[in-house]
Design a protein around this nucleic acid. Structure first.
Lengths: 224, 224
DNA sequence: TAGATTGTTAATCGATTAACAATC
DNA sequence: TAGATTGTTAATCGATTAACAATC
């Protein structure tokens, strides 16, 4: 292994999936697993699993495989899940409210600290004991409470300015749900959830499949 | 171009982003653009843009570039956005409700037709004029209304069974929000939105950045 | 010890970038 | 026509897979 070399994003994106599968094994009281068996369950190659893991260290043992609980915990550490992150939600519309009510993020170390919006009808409302505040109060709040992360669930017209502000106030990560590519300081991590892009990708795939089917039908007709 | 050859998923995932940028250009009344200028705006290479587009045909003109409106519409067609898809939401919890209230999906051709849940407290509730129905009524509804797509926003314990059922009843696409990899018939498109995976990826990146910073501080100390 | 399976190097495959002839 | 920029082929780069010696 060589911990210093740059890890490709493709590898990083696979880690949560490994973590998920190992969690399931753990729930089923499976204590050890070989890269071969895991690869069959996950539909990837054993080689890829071993290569991926060896970016971060040697977690297995020749002739034995991997200890499930140990590997699960190690990947958890690599993912930084032993940290806690204080987060706020900016934009308490439908999606913001849904995320505010999602308690599972806490299991990953993300603790909801504040809710912000511009809409007077939402300000003052309470979700999970937290009051929605006016966005004007955000600067003081972020600085005082040393907020690490913001979920951005606001209209895209406003998101660029908010992202810049938050970057200036020392935020570490932005979970961006708006259909805009943010371009902030390299000190700030931006993770995008482009729902609309995902939907369009699905549309593409469905469409392709339909075209393929039509073509096959055409072919059959001509062969008769 | 060669329309028959297999398009890689990497290319497909970039199409919605092109579509987004072209839409913005259109809003700003920009009528033509070269691959070079678009590449600078998007932070990719001009070569990649031309390669990507040429998977689907030649949409540009030598010496001129691309007509923004034409290219926008063509990519829309490739993405299947001229189709309409009738969809239902299965699981009307926080996230399901949020998605039900999202009217923007209609612009992409997705029309909400039904809402289903098992929770008696939700059944009977109305969102955007649509009543939440008992999941027992889903089979008849899907078949009668020729539903194309289902958004799966339910607890992961139940999602595998629901996905199998829907596949059997002729669904074309599943937009899966649960932290489970679905393994259904190859006739059904599955598009995953693994929010928890995305959050873990962000955690990884923040963590990495913090470790890097610590190391740099260490280095400085030693150099004094 | 023999068998199993890792960690790692080497080979292959695919995706991205560069280059340039074609042509508007 | 001259300049610009595409479409496309060729070169490079990186990621995945295969192979196998190391070793538990």
């Amino acid at each position: 292994m060589d911990t210093s070399r740059r890890i490709s994003i493709a590898v990083v994106k696979r880690l949560p999936r490994y973590y998920r599968y190992l969690g399931e094994l753990l729930e089923n009281d499976i204590t050890r697993i070989s890269s071969k068996e895991l690869s069959e369950r996950m539909g990837v190659t054993a080689s890829q699993i071993r290569q991926d893991l060896n970016n971060f260290g040697g977690f297995g043992q020749q002739g034995y495989g991997y200890n499930v609980e140990y590997l699960y915990n190690e990947i958890g550490k690599i993912l930084g899940l032993n940290n806690t992150y204080k987060f706020i939600i900016v934009g308490v519309g439908n999606l913001g409210q849904a995320l505010a009510n999602y308690t599972k993020f806490e299991k990953r170390g993300f603790i909801l600290k504040g809710l912000f919006d511009v809409n007077p009808r939402l300000i003052g409302m309470t979700i999970r004991g937290i009051e929605v505040k006016d966005i004007d109060e955000m600067e003081a709040f972020v600085k005082e409470n040393k907020i690490d992360v913001a979920f951005l669930t606001m209209p895209k017209s406003k998101v660029r300015k908010v992202a810049e502000d938050l970057a200036r106030w020392g935020i570490k990560g932005l979970w961006n749900f708006s259909a805009v590519d943010l371009d902030v300081s390299p000190d700030v991590v931006v993770e995008d959830v482009h729902l609309s892009d995902s939907l369009m990708t699905m549309s593409y795939k469905i469409n392709r499949k339909m075209i393929k089917k039509e073509k096959e039908l055409e072919m059959k007709k001509h062969h008769k």
